[in-house]
């Protein structure tokens, strides 16, 4: 079974924001909500690096662990999705996420948070595939259409890779071998690395 992953190649990203635009256009995302954004590290200094950031669909997703109403679920391909009908807009997932992925529409009165919105890996939500309800709440379901996320497909330099984790890791490995640098994949370990083992309790049997 394929495990869906994102991979941001900082050596290739030219900060064009094509991924951000593709995402907003594909899912008709309202103003104020950014499922994906481009972050530039050491902006303005020589050797600055840019990376495209969104929900990474973590292996051990912290948002799933902290949600008090259990809106999150994971597909068989490792895509972390959520049910907007259950979300109470508490914002715990936003504090837990290492990537700042959860977004909250703030068009309500008194700064009220709306239902959480985030990248779905273009895989829709719990509603039936291709339904109006699914599109309205979660956007287009490109995975069910036999495609991959719009951001990754739209990326002009193919800095943002999305798809089967084994395939994109292999593609990245070849790139690193060819260019001889840039083997660090930003966020990869945080999202897909093994969770740290808790410290052994004194006196506990191992």
């Amino acid at each position: 079974m394929a495990r869906m992953k994102f991979l941001a190649d900082a050596e290739r990203c030219i900060e064009c924001n094509g991924c951000v635009t593709a995402c907003k256009q594909e899912h008709e995302i309202p103003w104020g909500v950014n499922r994906r954004r481009v972050v530039t590290l050491n902006d303005g200094t020589p050797g600055e690096k840019s990376i495209s950031v969104a929900c990474m669909h973590c292996s051990d997703a912290p948002c799933m662990a902290v949600c008090p109403v259990d809106v999150f679920y994971k597909t068989s391909e490792g895509i972390v999705l959520h049910d907007k009908d259950l979300c109470i807009g508490c914002g715990y997932c936003f504090y837990a996420c290492p990537f700042g992925a959860p977004q909250f529409p703030q068009d309500g009165a008194f700064g009220l948070r709306g239902k959480m919105d985030k990248c779905t890996f273009c895989a829709g939500g719990p509603e039936p595939d291709f339904s109006d309800a699914e599109f309205k709440k979660y956007g287009r379901n490109r995975i069910a259409e036999g495609k991959l996320p719009a951001c990754a497909e739209m990326c002009s330099t193919k800095a943002l890779l999305g798809g089967d984790g084994d395939v994109i890791a292999d593609i990245y490995r070849r790139r690193v071998t060819t260019r001889g640098k840039g083997s660090e994949v930003w966020g990869w370990g945080t999202a897909y690395g093994r969770p740290e083992k808790p410290p052994a309790q004194p006196g506990a049997k191992s």
Partner: peptide, 22 residues
Amino acid sequence: EAVGKGYQLTEHVRKYYDTTKV
């Protein structure tokens, strides 16, 4: 090809993987 549930290695996906190898 379009109604399948979940990820499938379609022609479209194969073409995408090919474009990333440039």
